[in-house]
Design a protein around this nucleic acid. Sequence first.
RNA 1: CGGGAUGUAGCGCAGUUUGGUAGCGCACCUGGUUUGGGACCAGGGGGCCGCAGGUUCGAAUCCUGUCAUCCCGACCA
Length: 568
Amino acid sequence: MEVEMRYSKLFVPTLREVPAEAEIESHKLMIRAGLIRRFASGIYNFLPLGYKVFRNIENIIREEMDKQDGQELHMSALIPAEVLKESGRWDVFGPEMFKLRDRSNREFCLGPTHEESFTVSIRNEVRSYKALPQILYQIQTKFRDEIRPRFGVMRSREFIMKDAYSFDADEHGLDVSYKKMHDAYCAIFDRCGLDYTVVQADSGAMGGSGSEEFMVKSAVGEAAIAYCNSCGYAANDEKAQCVEPRTEIVSTKSIEKVKTPDIGTIDDLCNFFGCQPALFAKTLIYKADDEVVAAVVRGDRELNETKLTNLLGCVELEMADAETVMKVTGAQVGFAGPVGLKIKTIADLEVKHMADFITGANETDYHYSNVNLSDCNIEVFWDIRNIVEGDKCPVCGEPVKIDRGIEVGHIFKLGTKYSEALGCRFLDENGKEKPMIMGSYGIGVARTMAAVIEQNCDEKGIIWPLGVAPYKVIVIPVNTSKEEQMEMAERIYKNLLSLGLEVLLDDRNERAGVKFNDADLIGIPVRITVGKRASEGFVEYKLRKDEESQDIAEADIMSRIADDIGMS
RNA sequence: CGGGAUGUAGCGCAGUUUGGUAGCGCACCUGGUUUGGGACCAGGGGGCCGCAGGUUCGAAUCCUGUCAUCCCGACCA
């Protein structure tokens, strides 16, 4: 029995006006089209139309995961503290994790991710190499008390993620599982109608040996990606490697102390010395866990904290406060420099090729000019800056471009980080006990939905790709008081329904303009308008993505639809 | 947490400077006329003016506090 889908009965509260809370197009449209409503800061409810789309995306994910031997299961959202304490992440997550206690004061959290849950479950059940590999996944609500929720469903505090975990007996097995997930992700995002790039990423807090992100190209993306059109290299800004310059050092002068009263910023210094920021070496003081270190980059560069964190192998990295800076450099903020500094000092590779440059003198209101490396106390030279547009591609040397992207998926080779911490071991064919080799693979489902809208919309509304559209066809009788039109519309609607298509009949007694505007706003791919020419047996047929419509005979509707939406 | 802003009807806003009966547009309800790109006429419902305290004869408006939301920076699917 078919489900009736009459607009007059649906709960689809569309809005004519743009809600003040929304900043980006997808967020505005999701609210205007009646897909979601805000419930609290960073917390959204899905309304029927939004949930239909959501389930379509979920099902695409399920199908493609299953094709690659993924097995769906469901873990509790509530996680007992012990498992996270065992892996050491109870403290790592810090205030970002929603923590709570039960009536007998036992600690829990609302899962921000589920590595521990999966690893613990597997370790309790799998003991033999014969039972490997396994790829398990779930589509589950995650909770992260984000410092700053943003852009609606794009970055929320409660969000639904498809997360998968692979367990293998060796590195080769991990490579196979990882490739499977990579392929599944490509298939998923293709079917969602997304234009995306796969970029190399830092494996960061998750740990492990390698990772890639699936980035949907978008100006509103929160991540920057560097890519090379010549060789295809692509990496996010945390990871993108900056190559060491080849310039010869030509030093002609010797160090000189200069009084620079109240001139602490690079801008001020440029004015004072009358030169470019590239002639300065700026020194930033950081607290890396318990150690205070100095990081030196060229004056016009940005320090890449991820690269520095990885180099230092620390957990937390933050800029030192004014007091610490004073203690360590002996000067106020703005006058630090690598000359005579007592703490561990790391300089960017670029600095290695600078000559006769300017730095702080570690004395308030003084700088050194004509500084050279021999004057400095630098322990390590390393790539610690952010890549910028036009930098040399680390692979082929051509200039790279920088774009923005929405991170919709992330795949990691975790290795043995969790299996070792949680004792998830198996016996290999020689009877030797080994930790399993793991991978983890995430997709932000609602974020994917927002990304689809971001890439598929116009000034009138959403243009759903067929694969995710909540309804494939909308039938609009122009004038509900004309029996002839209503009868024809009903007939077409029922015929399409009987084919198993998701069809919406706009039976509301509204003016044509209202119905057209709503149909455009909610983005139904195919529109069939039953109007004046109903008496001649004609309807107007229009695709949402096209400008033009055309009149076709009622009898030809089925074949047109079959062509356009690829049914058999 | 730092910087900026805003809380008035379901939504979008005015009113706050200079205290004096709480307004506009959209949406909603009733009746009628309409019906191919967000109709028209007539009538109507809906407000702890974010919350608490204070000043005052009188507070949406002034003062103090508090909460919430949004935007800009560090976290990440």
